[in-house]
Write a protein that binds this DNA or RNA. Structure first.
Lengths: 222, 222
DNA sequence: AAGCGTTTTCAATAGATTTTAACCGAAAAA
DNA sequence: TTTTTCGGTTAAAATCTATTGAAAACGCTT
């Protein structure tokens, strides 16, 4: 269930979208002009905002811009005109998707679902990174090698997560110490090496992903 | 700069998209059927994958599903048919967006940009310099010659990075020693030459970019 | 306070990298 | 043309660095 804000001056449009959205179990709020849309949308309480481009008081593009100043709630733009210019401009103002009228409510809802799904990873869907037989589940805080869950120590998790989140980026020892150990850690460089060693031992054949950058640090390379 | 995989059996389509994408500075790889798309796409090396729905060997939907098993690279689907069923099905198989043919390449690229932008929020976008077949990736700290990764030593990386960052600028030996070796290095001049030699050997035909400025130093010239 | 798992330090070592020094050849100067 | 200077090459010597195992320090739980 999402909270959806629908902003369009045509009652017909709001109605048909509301009907479809509520049928799918979502909660709908309506706005009939741009100003109202901004006021409501700024609160950040919605999971997605649907904005018509042509609206009284404040057009959709401006409303989108304004809303983006306060929150990053995803925005789907609706336009009566199908001109390319509009689309491009829509994306530039920070819209997440763009649908041209006439549309089918089904299509709009499909897009809404797609957008919300990918814009709300932290809470719901677990964030998992897979590299061949290596599975790193940030949300569940576990790591699997060929399906077998590893039993890592806290530092090992943190180090691996950091490496994976920054995959394909060269990471100096200093950066690792700063970001994984914290700016106030003044320990030995060998500390990192030791943890890398243990991680590698745990990862088995997938140790290959952790490459040494001689004279520099390490990198998780895929 | 993104890495884009374009999978379509029509050469014409691949061509026009490639042209547009390369014009915007992206790196394009092509696949002509679904199987190939999956093989290439699974690597996770692409920033976005464009899949045609109708392809030999394996259709776009199945390819998308297959790719999603290994990586969460965003997928944009292309379809010759505009049927709603396709669109919904596309989103369900994990596609991030859906464009109906005939499309304008401009629109496709606008969508590609929008998708990639929202799918790579934090770091990602590597800082890469490309000179013909020579690729210098500062972020990943690697260098490729015609696609093959080189195995350089620390000094070689530093020297090359320094040269490239200061391309087309004449660099005296003193400046090189100071900036690459450090102000506290008081070694032999031949030291630089030796490293330049090794760099040149490693760069193969692209050694041509490193030009000697007799009586002065070196320059990376493009 | 003892026990236990975790983290950090440390020293030895093997291997890779960097520097040096000597020599050669080519280009510039005389 | 001869001399001088400068860059290229090479191989050996000197230096540096990642890795590893082992031990010490730490911190939580009982």
């Amino acid at each position: 269930m999402y909270k959806i804000l629908i902003a369009d001056d045509e009652q017909k449009i709001r109605e048909v979208l509301r009907e479809y959205a509520e049928f799918e179990g979502h909660e709908v709020t309506e706005a009939t002009n741009g100003m109202q849309a901004v006021e409501l949308g700024k609160s950040g309480e919605f999971d997605i905002i649907i904005l018509d481009v042509m609206m009284p008081k404040l057009d959709g593009f401006s409303a989108c811009k304004e809303i983006r100043k306060s929150t990053d709630t995803p925005v789907l733009m609706l336009s009566a005109r199908g001109e390319e210019y509009d689309k491009l401009f829509g994306f530039e103002t920070g819209a997440d998707d763009y649908v041209v009228k006439p549309f089918s409510p089904k299509e709009v809802l499909a897009r809404v679902n797609a957008i919300v799904k990918r814009n709300t990873p932290p809470s719901a869907a677990s964030e998992i990174a897979v590299f061949e037989g290596l599975e790193v589940n940030f949300t569940a805080r576990d790591v699997k090698v060929d399906g077998n869950k590893l039993n890592l120590t806290p530092k090992e998790y943190e180090l691996l997560f950091y490496l994976v989140r920054n995959k394909n980026i060269a990471l100096s020892r200093n950066k690792l110490l700063e970001d994984v150990w914290g700016y106030d850690f003044f320990g030995d460089d060998r500390t990192i090496d030791t943890h890398i060693k243990m991680l590698r031992n745990n990862l088995g054949e997938y140790r290959k992903f952790i490459v040494t950058l001689r004279g520099m640090g390490y990198k998780f390379e895929v």
